[in-house]
Amino acid sequence: MQTTITYDQAKRHVERKIGFMIHLTVFLAVNTGLILLNLQLGHDNWSVWPLFGWGIGVFFHGLSVVTHAPGNSWKQRMIQNELNKFQ
């Protein structure tokens, strides 16, 4: 089976990268604001909790973009196997 990337697949991957960059930018902006607010108020270090929790989500979002969604090739092979059955 020859794997060729189509325009739609390339477009989807670019959209996923852009989505991750937007997610990362918002994460950094919001958490910078929370840290500054925390420093301004002088309370205990509560701003680390949203940073940690949201950071886990950003990490896995980035991981899914970088690894090119490994389940996708498995899905493509299954689709190709089904198509081969009917040819």
Rank of each mutant, 00 (worst) to 15 (best):
H61A: 06
W49S: 06
A69V: 10
V26Q: 00
N72D: 10
V58H: 01
F59E: 02
L51Y: 05
Q40C: 14
K11T: 09
L39V: 06
A29G: 05
G71M: 07
N45L: 14
E82D: 11
K75T: 04
G19K: 11
Q2A: 08
Q2I: 13
F27T: 11
L37T: 14
H13V: 15
A10Q: 09
S47A: 15
W46F: 10
P50D: 03
Q40T: 15
G62P: 04
L37M: 11
P70F: 00
S47H: 10
Q76A: 07
T4K: 13
K75Q: 08
R12F: 12
T3G: 00
I18S: 10
I18F: 10
P70I: 02
H23M: 03
W49L: 11
D8F: 12
K11D: 03
Q9C: 00
A29D: 02
E82I: 01
I18L: 14
T25Y: 06
A69C: 09
H43M: 09
V66M: 10
R12M: 12
M78Q: 12
N81D: 13
G57P: 03
L28P: 02
T3W: 00
A69T: 12
Y7I: 03
T4E: 08
G57K: 04
V65Y: 06
G55E: 14
N45Y: 13
L41Y: 00
K11P: 03
T3F: 02
H13I: 15
L63E: 15
P50Y: 01
H68Y: 08
T4C: 07
H61M: 10
T32P: 00
G62V: 03
F20G: 14
E15M: 15
T25F: 12
H23K: 02
G62M: 04
V48D: 03
Q40V: 15
S47E: 08
G42P: 08
T4F: 09
D44K: 03
G33V: 15
H61T: 11
Y7W: 05
N72V: 14
N72I: 14
W74T: 11
N72A: 14
N45S: 12
V66I: 10
V30C: 05
K17W: 06
E82P: 00
L36S: 07
Q40W: 15
S73G: 08
L51W: 06
G42W: 02
F59H: 01
M78L: 08
L24F: 05
Q80W: 09
T6L: 00
W49E: 04
L41I: 07
V14W: 01
N81S: 09
N31V: 09
F20H: 15
Q9R: 01
Q2M: 07
T32R: 02
T6R: 00
H13M: 15
H61G: 01
L34V: 11
P70N: 08
W49P: 01
